[in-house]
Design a protein around this nucleic acid. Structure first.
Lengths: 113, 113
DNA sequence: ATGGTATATCGGGATATAACGATATGCTAA
DNA sequence: TTAGCATATCGTTATATCCCGATATACCAT
């Protein structure tokens, strides 16, 4: 695979992973919040997060039992990338809705049981 | 598929298509030139070009028997995209080599027979 | 330790994708 | 019109990817 570049684009070239990135633009989220909003199985979501993480698009920190994922904004590259992605995401109804859902998501409620 | 965004990233999320875009950064090229440099079959190259075109990353113009492909730089979006792609492509030996090959490619020689 | 919860990994099935060769299409020139 | 060339499309095969449920792992609370 073509080093870093291919990984980044391949990671973003999938519908559900774009949705995840879009949600993380609202705020950092744990896996159960994302799973709840996106409506895929937990294992599937976990797999997508792994791919995004390996492409260095997102990063994770452990918070006890939870793992919180967030956009990795460290370097200049990612800033450009997210600006681009963000402009592509504008005016998409589903994505707008999911960003709002992300903002409202509360892991203390969603992740119980 | 997620409208325009997914198409763009999916199109770029493939090794050989990234190589094609990279070559087109040197100059517009016809299919036979690209095929010669990239070392895949003509039908495969044609297929990749189709995908890049549908994602509105490249465009084509007919020149008699030849079809010349070039990066589509019309809108602001693509300018940002290409700047990003270009920065990702720096310092990749294979890609640098292929950009040089692209510059030297001469369809009047390569495309005979 | 034990039980419970959140996340990660594994195995398998269905679908998508990339590659090729063969063939079709479209254009040019004689 | 015919021949020849560049490109596009088709059919097939091999591989990759996505999805799920089941299970493993890691952590917390009792």
């Amino acid at each position: 695979m073509l080093n870093k570049t291919g990984k980044i684009f391949k990671a973003l070239g999938e519908n559900n992973r774009l949705r995840i990135v879009n949600m993380l633009m609202s705020k950092p989220m744990c896996v159960c919040e994302i799973t709840d909003i996106i409506g895929l199985s937990q294992s599937t979501v976990s797999g997508h997060l792994r791919i995004l993480k390996e492409a260095e698009i997102i990063e994770d920190i452990k918070e006890g039992l939870w793992v919180e994922y967030s956009l990795m904004k460290k370097d200049e590259l990612n800033k450009t990338l997210f600006k681009l992605v963000r402009s592509l995401f504008d005016n998409d109804e589903l994505l707008e809705k999911e960003r709002r859902s992300a903002l409202l998501a509360d892991r203390n409620i969603l992740c119980k049981k």
